[in-house]
Design a protein around this nucleic acid. Sequence first.
DNA 1: CCGCATCCAAACTGATACTG
DNA 2: CAGTATCAGTTTGGATGCGG
Lengths: 123, 123
Amino acid sequence: MATMNINGNVQEATCEQELAAIIDSLEILGGKWKLRIMRHLNNHAAETNTFKKIQREVEGISSKMLTKELRDLEINLLVTRTVLDTRPVSVSYSITEYGLSVLPVNEVLVQWGLNHRQRLKLS
Amino acid sequence: MATMNINGNVQEATCEQELAAIIDSLEILGGKWKLRIMRHLNNHAAETNTFKKIQREVEGISSKMLTKELRDLEINLLVTRTVLDTRPVSVSYSITEYGLSVLPVNEVLVQWGLNHRQRLKLS
DNA sequence: CCGCATCCAAACTGATACTG
DNA sequence: CAGTATCAGTTTGGATGCGG
């Protein structure tokens, strides 16, 4: 089966590879917070997004969760972490250029979810 | 923010609605098995997919999980359940026409996952 | 054959308190 | 301020056995 990658190239993959790819995607982007954080960082890319600020604006997340989620995203090269030279210390996070590649995924999920709501309402 | 729905219409939604839509999508399509089952039913749409057959072909899933996942999918109108008049009873499942709408989501996740693998390898 | 009930281990997550 | 540690409640998922 053929799929297009980010650069518009066609990638061939076996069925097993595709299954693994889906599992990867859901692991990296799934769950309650990951896409919310990515959306937030993208919508506020012009600002300095400190840990504190993110926690205030992504409603309901605990510091433990936010730490964990940001680290996961950093490991996957989707965000960068910068320690600021302030006192007391603060840390800011930004979406990476590569991180922008999750936006289409985001968009598809939004579209499907909105459509699904309507569908359930109609039936 | 504007998004296109399945029919090509533009849907407007508030940020909160978009968040809710993503959460819905991940709830309905996320997890280890849902998309695997949907892929399987789509790839074998011409056959009679009994519970037994699905369990044999979707590797590693327990009957408990398969029951639960299929019911969830049925509730969301993505698959239909048919009790066959055999002895002993067997039950078959098919992807619905509406269920086909998850295929683009599938495709985007496959694409992103494959691309991500390459990306991590390169860095 | 299909699905349910039960039991159980592991993972996830929230609350709270604490450290550098 | 950012992150860690601990505890407890919830959720998840596998294994097994039963009943229609």
